[in-house]
Nucleic acid binder design. Sequence first.
RNA 1: GCCGAAGUGGUGGAACGGCAGACACGCUCGCCUCAAAAGCGAGUGAGGGAGACCUCGUGUGGGUUCGAAUCCCACCUUCGGCACCA
Length: 818
Amino acid sequence: MVQSVEAGTRTTDERFDPREIEAKWRQVWEETDLYRTDLRRDDLLKYYNLMEFPYPSAEGLHVGHVYTYSGADTNGRYKRMQGYNVFEPMGFDAFGIHSENYALKVGINPMTLTARTVDRYRNEQMSRIGAMWDWSHEVNTSQPDYYRWTQWLFVQMYKAGLAVRKSAPVNWCPKDLTVLANEQVINGRCERCDTEVVQREMTQWFFKITDYADRLLEGLEGLDWPDVSKRLQRNWIGRSEGAELVFEVEGTGDPIRCFTTRPDTVFGATYVVLAPEHSLVGKITTPEQRASVEQYKMATSHEKEIERLSLDKEKTGAFTGAYAINPANGERVPIWIADYVLMTYGTGAIMAVPAHDERDHEFARKFGMRIVEVIESPEGVQDHAYTGPGPMRNSGQFDGTPNDEGKRVVTEWLASQGKARPTVTYRLRDWLISRQRYWGPPIPIVYCDTCGEAPVPEEQLPVLLPEVENFRPAGTGKSPLATVEEFYKTECPKCGGAATRETDVSDTFLDSSWYYLRYPSTEFDDRPFDPELTRKWLPVDSYMGGKEHIVLHHLYSRFVTKVLHDLGHLAFDEPFQRLRLHGMVTKDGAKMSKSRGNVKNPDEYMEQYGADAFRAYLLFMGPYEDDNEFNVNGVQGVARFLGRVYSLVDTRDQYGQGQGADMRTLHRTVERVTRGLDDLRYHTSIAALMEMSNWIGSAREQMTAEQLQDALEHLVLMLAPIAPFTAEELWSRLGGPYSVHGQKWPTFDPSALATETVTLVVQVNGKVCDRLEVPAGTSQEDATVAAMESARVQPYTDGKQVRKAVWVPDKLLNLVVG
RNA sequence: GCCGAAGUGGUGGAACGGCAGACACGCUCGCCUCAAAAGCGAGUGAGGGAGACCUCGUGUGGGUUCGAAUCCCACCUUCGGCACCA
């Protein structure tokens, strides 16, 4: 198409060069500030159209980005044509391991490199897509004018008691040489580099997201989010209701608190298991058992991560020699340690009920523990644990009580003796914020020998990240900043004495947890987000994101928003009213990734076929929210379609001398395209537009000039959100006023769809026999007469009685004979 | 193991209880051309028939219904999430 500019034998439709047209309109759009949103205008409803911002990395923008942005931008353009004041900002998630690893790879300081990469992304790649981004509100998380407020956010968290420094077992990535949050460990591997993480006990900064666990659960109710994202978040938070029961250690009287969801089975607790790291282990282990307990602890602490992940590992454990007292029946039960009890969940100790818990059963069988049936079990409990419901037995005064009720009454009974309390436990862990890396906002905390830790006063923010020679992560458990004396030596904000700064930086996910609050307020350097603009523009109306962020970015953003709400900074407590998850672009059935070598570079395709053809093709692949397989040939198909639309516009003078055509297709297309855009089923919108263009091609002989012009205008208007350059060009060729993107979205007239005749399907016993053209509104009686006269119907009804007829007006007549 | 989603031509997919396969890709044939590319036109679920047409057909088996790709139950397969979470 591009190279066919040669001779006069060509029809005009082939004589266009997408590159030329795109360059032309890009310039006009820029000169006329077409996509600059007046955030203060009041005459239109606002629409905050948010999409995930990219992190600048080595690979550059890939097809997946263009896919995301094409769909989200199409939505924004559609909303704009529907009359909303649409704000569609874009920025860069420029801090963090992704950008830093790229810098390490090429050996250039990320301060220099990231600025360069961002420019390349914006000017060479993103600008080509034709999205209506308002670059006057660009955000770059690595710039001091942004991360100053990321640090401010940390300080607010600190002051609210939600940022705490504590020692805990944490995930350490041996390749990236930093700790990671739980959410950033996928199947025991680093979310970024896929390296197996190891557990380390370290003192780190945490955000107490667990304090918000219930709020985060409840808040999901009212959100217009896909079910899958709500389910995954619920799953991740992992709320579990039960009770803590106290087993006292025989002799010492130390209380062992055991979390259980089955207090109804406490009479069957025949032993107690502590996590190997449990603090009581050292104290209660008897001299005879010390050697084997120590050995077991050693063994589990080493191979833990790899081993614990393996599915059907045999149960292991060691006896401490100590005994505890079952609070329900006073029985003396042995205390063991085993790695199937996790220190990081519940209390790190369990009461084991082998009769009614599969794990305990397996352990009991291996180590010869007693198995006592306390819930009536249809097949006994010696071979398998019974985990179903039933009446209680062997449980003293509770015998016969349904176990469901037993959970409550047993807890109440033990609680009255001070030996139990109802408890809720979560799978969710606190958010580990510290990173032992260079490329992030320094955590704004100062340590003073006299005054202890203190946040950097807000007026002193930002704590600037110094430009340093050696930014390579050290692997010592400390950030490279720990070697930069000019940085960490400081004064205590309280006493003015010598003090040192925290040298860790914060998690990249903290940067992105609030960026949507910044976009409208980028003009202000004295506040993170302006109260008035924030009230006007937030929460976000539509957020387009990836599934991979459901328990990362989306969860963190909700948490941060709720905290800022509680601290009085925000009126709302959910950031994203409507969330939609775009699918992945796959190649050969697999996610595109560098390691698979199936990454497609979008630039080539945009160069060859034009940005519009590429955009439209990506949307044409399949449902936007599904994963879709990329196929080069498809781009050509869509490019051909756009070429045909050019041809229809450019040859319109040769047609339009007809007597008038049936224009119903036009109205039906408006309906179909609109529905496709509303439901993010862009592929059906594009299919409808293709059908419409095919229809214009065959019906234009019959059309009047006005009809043809009207049809072409509608086609171009509806093409505008999907193929913005092409539509702008064709709109101007059709003589429409600049810009097509400021026009009103066409509405369809249902009455125009009403027709004089309809095709009535005639079925006999549910099988299609004939189709009749009948006047609209034909009565069942008339239709039946017509059907019975049909030569196609008669063979089926001949000599038979019509016992029943199903009538769907103007659509279907089903005669039941027999 | 638990939770969830999805199975439709050679391919991507359409059809929100009423004509299965729209729209494309691919392929075949034709037009145009010295030739090719591009473009345009016709055809294209499977089987049968010379033919207007007939039969079968939406993972498998049941069910609801006048009528099921669509709703319900069971199973199979694939994918995703969680997983020794007490």
